[in-house]
């Protein structure tokens, strides 16, 4: 199962991330996870939100350039070695990770890892076969 992620192109300028989060806040869109990749000139803000269709709409409305991508969310126990275990499985299967970011799920003591794979179908298959939990939208509280 894959999850929809929205990415926004931003220049490295003061206040850009604030503006994006304000736009989302005003439209009552909740951020579930976020990561920022950047170079010296520009960056890409990647977000998992509870209502992606609306997020895309309001951001485009404000003139932002956005892109939707499918990512895979993996749930691991929040303890030392949790991520390493997942990466080892991927490494053995020779699965390339384009990028990833992680966040912590408070009540369940679990960590959620968001992966962008070159070949997501195969990654899901390999991880599931090893008993690693692939999280769905409901785990992330998204519609």
């Amino acid at each position: 199962m894959q999850i929809r992620q929205v990415s926004v192109f931003i220049e490295n300028k003061v206040g850009r991330i604030m503006e994006i989060t304000e736009v989302l806040g005003e439209s009552n869109i909740n951020l579930r996870a976020l990561s920022l990749a950047d170079t010296s000139d520009f960056g890409i803000l990647r977000m998992i939100v509870d209502n992606i269709d609306k997020a895309v709409e309001v951001l485009k409305d404000k003139g932002f350039i956005v892109k939707e991508t499918d990512v895979v969310a993996v749930e691991v126990p929040d303890k030392p070695g949790g991520l390493a275990q997942v990466l080892e499985v991927l490494c053995i299967a020779n699965i390339n990770v384009e990028y990833m970011y992680a966040f912590f799920e408070q009540p369940k003591d679990k960590a959620l890892l968001i992966f962008r794979f070159e070949d997501p179908e195969r990654a899901i298959e390999v991880l599931s076969a090893r008993g690693i939990q692939i999280a769905g939208g409901e785990t992330l509280g998204i519609g």
């Binding site: 170079t39 350039i65 956005v66 892109k67």
Partner: peptide
């Protein structure tokens, strides 16, 4: 200017 056709979620592609 960035546009819908050029944007990617990956830095390396934009570079």
């Amino acid at each position: 200017e960035m546009n819908e056709k050029m944007i990617s979620d990956e830095i390396k592609e934009l570079e």
